Simulated assay, not measured.
Amino acid sequence: MYVIAILGNFTILFIIATEPSLHRPMHYFLCMLAINDLVLSTSIMPKTLSIFWFNSTETSFNACLTQMYFIHCFTVVESGILVAMAVDRYVAICHPLRHSTILTNRMVAQIVLAVVLRGSTVVLPYPLLARQWPYCRTNIISHSYCKHIAVVTLACADTRVSNYYSLFMILFVACVDMCFISASYTQILRAIFSLHTTEARRKTFGTCSTQLCAILVFYIPDVVSSVIHRFDYIVPPHVLILIANVHLVVPSMLHPIIYGVRTKQIQDRLLWVFTHKKI
């Protein structure tokens, strides 16, 4: 899955960079999503593989905090990118004549900057709070990477501040982003069903179904992982560890496959790369 994620996302970046017809807001966001997936999967998989292949089970505390920051930061960034892509589809379908004037290159750059700044700032308290707690119980984490809750539970102090902030992050990031996405697609579906012909509805829905699949691929594993970890006392530890890794790697692997299969411009460019013929 990691190899497919690396090859797939690099392929998406190469195709969009070399195809002028794909230099549009939606594909700029797709480039950002591919870069984010590369960083997110690379934040955990090399260390995870070294644990299983070379029994390299030790890491320094600072390296652990750094990994924690990168994992949670780029998870938040990815959620923000999916919101931006949902807004792009909303403008394209509900206000098609104003799409080019609303989502200019300058606006796209500002949205990307805002998404990155939000992810990098709201996650910063995670390692800062984790650093200040005393750790006197054990230094063994029950995961193959430094997940925030896995590290904080090792502290022999009152860590309610970290727990409260973690709950705030769920409400502030996940719930708010999902509300924005739901609102965007509610308006999109209303616009689609107001069309007069079935063919027009099918074509219009096809333009946003790809991004809807990408959203489901990201949020469903995340929700499943969160729910299962609430019942960790009845789930075997190796299952928890497997799910904790898979829910971060699966979206990174499936996103380029989804866009490669369902986006005709990307398909055509990919065929041209392999056949050296114009489509």
Rank of each mutant, 00 (worst) to 15 (best):
G8Q: 04
N9F: 00
F10R: 12
T11M: 05
T18A: 09
E19V: 10
E19Q: 14
H27M: 11
A34H: 06
L38C: 03
T42E: 08
S43G: 05
K47P: 05
S50H: 09
E58M: 03
F61C: 02
C64M: 07
T66D: 13
T66L: 07
Q67W: 03
V76C: 12
V76E: 07
V77I: 15
V77G: 08
I81N: 05
D88C: 09
Y90I: 02
A92S: 14
H95T: 11
H99S: 12
H99A: 13
R106C: 12
Q110I: 09
V115G: 03
V116G: 03
L129I: 02
R131N: 12
P134S: 07
Y135F: 10
I140R: 10
Y145V: 08
V151W: 00
V161C: 00
Y165E: 00
V173I: 14
A174V: 11
C179E: 10
S182W: 07
A183F: 09
Y185Q: 04
T186C: 11
Q187E: 12
I188S: 05
I192C: 04
G206W: 01
T207L: 04
F218W: 03
Y219C: 10
I220C: 01
P221F: 01
I228N: 07
I228G: 09
F231Y: 11
F231H: 08
D232V: 04
P237S: 15
L242K: 09
L242P: 05
V246Y: 08
L254G: 03
I257Y: 02
I258R: 03
G260R: 01
R262T: 15
K278T: 14
